[in-house]
């Protein structure tokens, strides 16, 4: 990435530990604009922790987080969203009683700063409703957008996770196992939707299915025990001896 534009997201020496358990140990990460960057590693490697640190849901013990040129290490989670950082959750974190349309409209109202308006009817916010509908349509879930979220099929709920994140118009989108719990046959379809996102959005995704990782990622970072083991192109990672040891080591005796 020499000579390229500055990364849209970067971490420097990010550290976090719970007591004696170190979950992030000097993590340096750089995500350039428009990247499709996969974060892989065995269970407990600290991938979700890293997402939680970057989004501000956890406070790091040390290190810095940059969005563009701006240091956001001390910013509240909602402020980081305002500066273009959005995320989805590994386990659905939706609004069960709201319809998909209401949920996405709410997210757009929050982005536009009109969610504090209590004296005007929501029906008058047609621009927000239209945009919400367009986002849902782009992910092919507009046909079920009037149903309460809790009644949606699981795969549709996973897409709604992404729709809610997109509603904040992110520059960087963090996807924490977007296909978790989705049948293998449908997960490729779900990733087609992610691959179809605008190139203005940089995507960092955690994923366990290697066929998906190697198909969609332009760069891959491998984490082990809170540390970055290696980073490179899919080709480099596929032929890396260390990665093979981590992923295949336990199976050697099988």
């Amino acid at each position: 990435m020499t000579g390229a534009a500055p990364p849209v997201l970067a971490t420097r020496g990010l550290c976090k530990s719970f007591g004696s358990l170190v979950v992030a140990d000097g993590v340096d990460l750089e995500i350039p604009a428009g990247a499709r960057h996969a974060l892989i590693g065995p269970n407990g490697a600290g991938k979700t922790t890293l997402v939680n640190l970057v989004t501000g849901m956890l406070r790091p013990n040390g290190g810095q987080i940059f969005l563009g040129a701006e240091d956001v290490t001390a910013a509240a989670p909602e402020q980081r969203v305002g500066r273009g950082l959005a995320r989805t959750f590994q386990v659905n974190a939706l609004f069960p009683a709201l319809t998909a349309l209401e949920a996405v409209t709410l997210a757009i109202c929050e982005r536009n700063g009109v969610a504090r308006c209590w004296w005007r009817s929501i029906a008058g916010f047609t621009a927000e409703i239209d945009e919400a509908h367009a986002i849902l349509a782009s992910l092919s879930i507009a046909s079920v957008c009037h149903r309460p979220t809790r009644e949606l099929a699981y795969g549709h709920q996973r897409l709604l996770e992404i729709a809610l994140a997109l509603a904040s118009r992110p520059k960087v989108l963090l996807l924490d196992e977007p296909t978790a719990g989705v049948p293998r046959s449908e997960s490729a379809e779900l990733f087609e939707a992610i691959a179809g996102l605008s190139r203005d959005i940089a995507v960092l995704f955690i994923e366990h299915d290697m066929s998906i990782v190697f198909r969609f990622a332009s760069r891959i970072t491998v984490m082990v025990s809170g540390r970055i083991l290696v980073e490179g192109t899919p080709d480099e990672i596929a032929h890396d001896e260390q990665v093979r040891a981590v992923y295949l080591g336990s199976r050697h005796h099988g």
């Binding site: 959750f89 005007r120 929501i122």
Partner: peptide
């Protein structure tokens, strides 16, 4: 029935997600 009312229901349903969509 205002955007604020919608935000209130959002808080009731999932306050963690509210933060994740940029709401205070």
């Amino acid at each position: 029935h205002s955007p604020f009312g919608l935000a209130l229901r959002g808080i009731r349903e999932n306050s963690v997600r509210m933060t994740a969509i940029g709401a205070s």
